[in-house]
Structures are given as C-alpha cells and as structure tokens.
Simulated assay, not measured.
Amino acid sequence: MTDRQELLSGMALTVFKLNGQFLDIAEGLARPVGLTAAHWQVLGAVLKDPLPVAGIARQMGITRQAVQRIADILADNGMVEYLPNPAHRRAKLVAPTERGRETVQRIEPAHAAFADRMCEALGDDLASEIHLRLRELSDTLETLETREDAR
C-alpha cells in the first residue's frame, strides 16, 4: 500500500470512529426526551426551513429511503408534518410541528453542556479549526465524487 493509500485509509477509519462516537453522544442526548439520534438529525435538518425528504438525505449524507422511514415515524408521533411543496407536486416538504420543536428544545441544555465540555477540552480555536478542516474534507470528497459521476 502506498503512503497516500495509508493516509486515505487512516482518514476514513478515523471518520468512521468519529461517526460512531458522535452517534453515541447524540443517542445519549436524545434518549431522555424520547428521540433517537436519527430522529433528532431529521428534526434538526428542518428546524430552520422545511425540506423535501431528498433534500434532508443530501444534507445528512444518507439514503432518501432511510430519511423517509424516519420522517414517517416522526409524523406518526406528531413531531413533523408533510406540507405541499410549491417546487414539486409529489415531493412534500417535511416541517417540524410545535411538538417537534419543543422536543428538540428540551435537548438544548444537555447539548450546550456537552459542547462546552468539548470546546474546553480542545480549546475554541482548535475546535473551530477542526470544524473548518472537516468541512473542507467533505467538500473535497463531494467534488471528487461529482467528477467521478461525470465520467
């Protein structure tokens, strides 16, 4: 294996581990209010603006089918509702209900406390730098995927 292959594999394995760690943290924060990490992710994706299921899936980097399943569960539990989409007749918009917003707000104190602990451990400057570099890595991978799809 070349040095670059080792580097790619090392980055991927670290991100996979981070993903698991973040999901465990999210589960711990969401569980006390009756949500799963996945439910919280979908709700969080639509708090500012309603989105179609495909838009949520793109934002989260998961399949449309997985988001649809979660959105249907959230709708059955009164956390989200489906609204007409002026841009697409069949692709309804997912929007949080007042109950969904209130549930996410109940996570905020524990979320803020964990964010404070993490930033205190890393330092605010390093935490910001890590966030920037992770976004750059994600953007680069997206660009490379797009180029590959164009072939």
Score class of each variant (00 low, 15 high):
residue 111 H to G: 05
residue 53 V to P: 03
residue 70 I to G: 00
residue 97 T to H: 11
residue 85 N to E: 07
residue 70 I to M: 07
residue 45 A to I: 07
residue 57 A to N: 03
residue 77 N to Y: 05
residue 96 P to Y: 01
residue 54 A to I: 08
residue 140 T to G: 12
residue 119 C to Q: 14
residue 27 E to A: 10
residue 74 L to I: 03
residue 37 A to T: 02
residue 126 L to H: 01
residue 142 E to R: 09
residue 108 E to K: 14
residue 59 Q to V: 04
residue 69 R to H: 10
residue 29 L to I: 13
residue 137 L to Q: 09
residue 140 T to S: 12
residue 74 L to R: 00
residue 34 G to C: 08
residue 74 L to Y: 00
residue 106 R to P: 00
residue 99 R to Y: 12
residue 124 D to H: 09
residue 37 A to F: 02
residue 21 Q to Y: 12
residue 125 D to V: 13
residue 129 E to T: 10
residue 74 L to G: 02
residue 43 L to C: 08
residue 30 A to R: 02
residue 137 L to T: 08
residue 117 R to D: 15
residue 148 E to K: 05
residue 84 P to C: 00
residue 22 F to H: 10
residue 110 A to Q: 09
residue 62 I to N: 08
residue 22 F to Y: 09
residue 44 G to C: 11
residue 47 L to A: 15
residue 93 L to P: 00
residue 145 E to S: 09
residue 99 R to T: 11
residue 44 G to D: 05
residue 41 Q to T: 07
residue 51 L to M: 11
residue 104 V to C: 12
residue 40 W to A: 04
residue 105 Q to W: 09
residue 144 L to I: 07
residue 128 S to I: 05
residue 117 R to Q: 15
residue 17 K to A: 12
residue 137 L to P: 03
residue 128 S to P: 00
residue 146 T to F: 04
residue 40 W to Q: 01
residue 64 R to Y: 01
residue 123 G to C: 08
residue 43 L to P: 03
residue 45 A to R: 06
residue 130 I to S: 04
residue 119 C to I: 08
residue 69 R to S: 10
residue 74 L to A: 03
residue 83 L to Y: 03
residue 71 A to Y: 01
residue 33 V to F: 06
residue 123 G to D: 01
residue 54 A to H: 14
residue 116 D to E: 13
residue 120 E to F: 14
residue 49 D to K: 15
residue 106 R to D: 02
residue 47 L to S: 15
residue 99 R to C: 11
residue 71 A to C: 04
residue 45 A to N: 10
residue 94 V to F: 02
residue 121 A to R: 15
residue 101 R to A: 12
residue 105 Q to I: 13
residue 24 D to Q: 13
residue 109 P to M: 10
residue 66 A to I: 03
residue 49 D to W: 15
residue 60 M to S: 08
residue 74 L to C: 02
residue 62 I to H: 04
residue 97 T to S: 13
residue 31 R to D: 06
residue 58 R to W: 03
residue 131 H to R: 14
residue 68 Q to K: 13
residue 26 A to N: 01
residue 51 L to H: 01
residue 130 I to L: 11
residue 69 R to M: 08
residue 46 V to T: 05
residue 84 P to L: 02
residue 129 E to H: 06
residue 48 K to C: 15
residue 67 V to E: 01
residue 50 P to K: 06
residue 137 L to Y: 07
residue 90 R to P: 04
residue 124 D to F: 09
residue 90 R to G: 01
residue 34 G to L: 03
residue 57 A to T: 01
residue 125 D to F: 03
residue 130 I to E: 04
residue 41 Q to P: 00
residue 45 A to P: 06
residue 112 A to R: 15
residue 87 A to M: 03
residue 22 F to I: 10
residue 25 I to R: 05
residue 81 E to P: 04
residue 106 R to T: 02
residue 22 F to G: 09
residue 122 L to D: 11
residue 65 Q to F: 05
residue 78 G to C: 10
residue 48 K to F: 15
residue 124 D to Y: 05
residue 104 V to L: 15
residue 95 A to G: 11
residue 37 A to M: 09
residue 83 L to H: 02
residue 129 E to L: 09
residue 52 P to H: 10
residue 56 I to T: 04
residue 142 E to M: 07
residue 93 L to V: 10
residue 111 H to M: 12
residue 20 G to S: 13
residue 92 K to P: 00
residue 30 A to M: 09
residue 140 T to A: 13
residue 24 D to I: 04
residue 49 D to C: 15
residue 62 I to Y: 02
residue 136 E to R: 14
residue 84 P to H: 00
